[in-house]
Design a protein around this nucleic acid. Structure first.
Lengths: 210, 210, 210, 210
DNA sequence: TTTTAATCGAGACGGTACGTCGCGTCTTGTT
DNA sequence: AACAAGACGCGACGTACCGTCTCGATTAAAA
């Protein structure tokens, strides 16, 4: 990543003052992001190349490399820039409701093309530690913290909260990455019920613990 | 995938009879698989190339391409061929115990290098539908079915079983792919307890359902 | 070349007796030659490959290689087999007439596709000594000797005959290989007249010899 | 051919002004040409490959392909670049002398390795129209025009000149491409005498015209 | 008739080279 | 300085044919 750009990833945002020479064009950044997303939507995020973005956007490769280290980072940046404002937690009165809302909201926000983008980002993060860190820092972590904050009032301990998140969002990502069946409302409800079950057959009835 | 090879992926196994032309050398297949794994272990699965495998194994690139469509498919084949026999379900007397065993066994079987391999396979499957299908068919599905068989005696319905698997293995893959914290025994125990909880704070205490 | 085939190139022709084992199928030879010519006509002789001929003819590559050393040799064989019987010398009463006939006949016999074939054979002969020898032995030499025999009655010495052939047929091949202008009747007549000139401006008038 | 290079083939030569981007390195061009010639001399022009030139010259394959479309074109370029300045017409006082000089000079300029190169170029031109055009435009045509200019003073008409060139140089190329006998001084003299004969047996004596 | 041995199809195999793509870096003006 | 343009070295791609090699399965003459 560059110290000057990747607005969505780094905090930055502020206008650079006092730098010598020609200032970077903010418009250019947007054009490039837009082109990257468009290409990702059209051909799939895996086929997007810096070369292609350069051609499509009319922005020189040099300029792109000056701001992002590679295509995956650029796509991640563009994706987060686009989806960031879309998702927000809806706090509710109950724990189960909060999680249920969060999962349903996420499913709704992730349109097919966004879902593919996200799948690709997870994939890209597997072979690029920097990307993995950025993914954690800018996507996963903030929304986990938001979730933890949202359920704090219910008196859930930190590690208990982590386990809840791992279970519910783990299941979500699992089905997204290994799409053997659709992610639909019933399934989400089933997940939540199972985790917060108070009536279904308790484990004891199912054979007890060993 | 090829109709004649990828033994670990396709069922095959049977001896080829009546096939015309010179038979494919089984030795060659093993040599290539071995080389692919060795390179993956040394440089990471993402850096393995067909070119490299060809050089390292001494098997011509054409021969490799005759059997596998690309490096990822070959690595998947080799990985499954290697790990396949390693993992088997240990049936226990209780449901919770069965799942607990399964998760702990998986964690144990997945040495760091295998874990990286698996992460890479999930990643590769995101941008290659064929690979995705093969991953599901040869890795995920058989072990899900084995799990479902193992818990059938406890009277768990099919969809209830799917949800349990999604939650527990979803969490496992989630932490593997987004490694913000280690996968250790305590965490696995916590997962299982949370899902099969009969004593921890029930959801009702946590605010009821909305 | 093979000791048993290349009928058009080697003398052979005779039926093999005393050979043990299954005899070679003469039909196969013709099928292959035919396929080679067809492919050459369709895609140009330079694009014809043994692999392609094998596929097109349904004759195994092994079988083809058993009879011809490479594609060029096969094409040469097929070409000569086809064109061989077409061309024959028409003896006339005069030297100039004999040459004129020979050139016109050659021009007529060489249809566009045959001409391209011949150009390709000359080309192939440049980088394959065996082919060069075969080309000389089976195409150029026999027809030079026929020409020399035809003009022997006119009392032309051997080396004088060679020079005449080099000039006239040299010009012909030159224009065929470097086709800056068409090979038409007027041009052929012009060549012959120039070589056998008895009236046009003699060299003396053009400045004498130096 | 490329619009920017192939100096020997295209007229170019002029300094590039106003071209965008980094300029092509002229040094690189020379290095590649040199390597191509060296390889052609060592292994024969037919065995020269772009891959080999790249390795030998240390210039990336992509860079080579950026300038020449294939190995043959590169060899042609290099050959003409090398031999171009070597050959020039020596005008003499007589027609026969001019041609005689031209043929002897050509024979002398064409060292064995250059001769093989030339044979290969003619061959390559047979299956590549672009190459054929380049060969005509950059090798044959300029030299024919120079010849025609040289004999203009002797009052030879254009088409008469063409026939003379076709006969004499046709014979030369014929013997070069179908090397059944050496190209030596006596033979060249014989050719010239035969074409410009004023004393040898006229055609009438040889049977008249039909 | 039975050998017997070469032929034939099919296709695997190790090679070499192809021509292309995309990478990330670099030079060269221009703004 | 940023920027567009494009050259450059590099690594790898996936493909085409090469010519050789195993395979069985014919098939025709010799024994």
């Amino acid at each position: 990543m560059d110290s000057r750009t990747c607005a969505a990833l780094k905090g930055s945002g502020g206008v650079k003052i006092g730098e010598k020479g020609r200032a970077r064009s903010g418009v250019t950044t947007d054009i490039v992001r837009e082109a990257a997303l468009a290409l990702a939507r059209e051909f799939g995020p895996g086929r997007v190349t810096v070369e292609g973005i350069s051609t499509a956007s009319g922005v020189a490769k040099t300029t792109i490399y000056r701001r992002w280290p590679n295509a995956a980072a650029l796509i991640m940046d563009a994706f987060l820039d686009e989806i960031g404002p879309v998702i927000a937690y809806r706090p509710t009165a109950t724990l189960i409701g909060t999680f249920s809302n969060a999962l349903h909201d996420l499913a709704r926000a992730l349109t097919p093309s966004r879902r593919e983008m996200l799948r690709h980002l997870v994939a890209a993060a597997q072979s690029d530690p920097d990307l993995g860190a950025a993914f954690w820092e800018n996507w996963i972590k903030p929304r986990r913290e938001e979730a933890l904050r949202a359920i704090q009032p219910f008196g859930v301990a930190r590690d208990e909260g982590d386990i809840l998140l791992d279970l519910l969002f783990g299941a979500f990502y699992y089905r997204m990455l290994i799409p053997y069946a659709a992610i639909d409302s019933e399934w989400i409800d089933g997940l939540v019920e199972r985790v917060f079950l108070d009536d279904p057959k308790p484990a004891t009835e199912l054979g007890g613990r060993n």
